[in-house]
Design a protein around this nucleic acid. Structure first.
Length: 394
DNA sequence: CGGATTTGACCGGCGC
DNA sequence: GCGCCGGTCAAATCCG
């Protein structure tokens, strides 16, 4: 890419030269050199930018591989823990939700990434093999979102893509779309319709968080235990899009906006919407991947150190964390006992946290059939979210 | 006037 | 079986 810079400079200079040639001939040469100089400096900037982007891309790839590895570890430990729990099934709910997969969303440039870097390089070849086998929803999402950033997403691709993510997130309920494909995916086969919900907590003054999608409000309810009404939105980007979201202010702190997403978009997303879509989809995929192999939901063991990846400028951290008895229910009334819920907490500040990733909370409703996994999106920067998320939605 | 929002009614699941 | 509750529908209303 940068190698073509010289030619471009020449070409540009020629172009400028041609126009200047029509002017008076005396300063022709000087002007030409001037133009070449300015074009060169411009190219230098572009080249610099290019280098930076390349480095970012490399880092993303590395981190992604690392994340994949971590995911595989989770799956492995899950199967082993499942076997052990089979022999000793006398665990309580707290224990079931005893593990946390934390996605740390937000840039954290100051945060050292030694650990995952070391694990990265050591196991990069393994990762190549894993890559072929893993069906983590993040996989497809990273691809699509990267495409969105780097080039224009082709609608055809985007339409085909969801197939993979639906394998993890079986949103389209049978009553909406009875059957998607002739060949069922594994998750659909082994369990009744199961929706993952991704709950995002943010501090937001506006009625809703602008995630880049178009939403249409179709209902509002005052739910028990929270004086603030809960609003129901459905995605209107595509008429058949099954994605819905619920927006509610936190009862304890009305500056906190709780947005719960359900389902997967079955249409190409606006660029501005890919960040949130990727995040929620990845989170949901992780949740469902965990629960699909375990009846208890995400009961995986995560050991070792943290893994980290970046996506669309959002940094995801995957690390082990043990949940203790300190439960905090984000939905006092448990918005839906039917679905596993993953909570992305974007409200906590890392400075108040006891872990490098900030405070985390686990919610496991007493009435819930599924554990709720909490992801704390803390950041070392104040604006851990893409700027658009905090702004006014439709 | 068309699209978005509001709001009361309705439905289904769940607990008692 | 009944009541509660969350979720959805749809007619009425609002707004650009």
């Amino acid at each position: 890419m940068p190698s073509s810079g010289g030619a471009a400079v020449e070409e540009r200079a020629v172009q400028f030269g041609l126009t200047s040639r029509e002017d008076s001939g005396c300063s022709q040469e000087a002007k030409k050199e001037e133009v070449i100089e300015s074009a060169k400096s411009e190219m230098g900037d572009v080249r610099e930018e290019n280098q930076r982007l390349k480095m970012m891309l490399e880092r993303i790839e590395k981190d992604y591989k690392s994340l994949q590895l971590r995911f595989f570890d989770i799956l492995q430990h899950e199967t082993s823990s499942k076997q052990s729990t089979d022999s000793a099934p006398s665990h309580d709910e707290t224990e079931e939700s005893n593990e946390l997969v934390s996605l740390c969303l937000g840039r954290s440039p100051t945060e050292p990434k030694k650990e995952d870097k070391s694990t990265n390089s050591a196991k990069s070849t393994e990762n190549e093999e894993l890559k072929a086998n893993l069906t983590l929803g993040l996989d497809s999402k990273i691809l699509t979102s990267t495409e969105t950033v780097l080039s224009n997403p082709s609608p055809a691709e985007s339409v085909e893509e969801p197939k993979e993510e639906e394998a993890g997130e079986t949103w389209p309920p049978s009553k909406v779309i009875p059957k998607r494909n002739g060949d069922h995916d594994e998750a659909a086969q082994q369990s009744p319709p199961k929706r993952a919900r991704v709950c995002v907590r943010t501090r937001c003054d506006t009625p809703t968080m602008n995630d880049g999608c178009q939403w249409r409000k179709y209902g509002q309810k005052i739910s028990k235990g929270n004086p603030c009404p809960r609003a129901y939105y459905r995605c209107t980007v595509a008429p058949s899009c099954p994605v819905r979201k619920q927006v509610q202010r936190c009862a304890e702190d009305t500056t906190i906006l709780i947005t719960t997403y359900e389902g997967t978009h079955n249409h190409p997303l606006p660029v501005s919407a890919t960040a949130m879509a990727s995040t929620t989809s990845a989170a949901a995929s992780m949740l469902l991947s965990g629960s699909s192999t375990s009846q208890q939901g995400l009961v995986s063991h995560i050991n070792g150190t943290s893994a980290r990846t970046e996506l669309n400028g959002l940094s995801f951290s995957l690390h082990d964390q043990y949940l203790r008895a300190n439960k905090q229910l984000y939905f006092p009334n448990s918005s839906s006992p039917m679905f596993p819920t993953i909570t992305l907490d974007l409200t906590t500040s890392p400075s108040t946290s006891s872990t490098p990733f900030g405070r985390f909370s686990s919610s496991f409703s007493s009435t819930s059939r599924f554990p709720s996994t909490s992801l704390n999106f803390s950041s070392t920067e104040s604006n851990s979210l893409p700027p658009i998320w905090g702004k006014r939605a439709p």
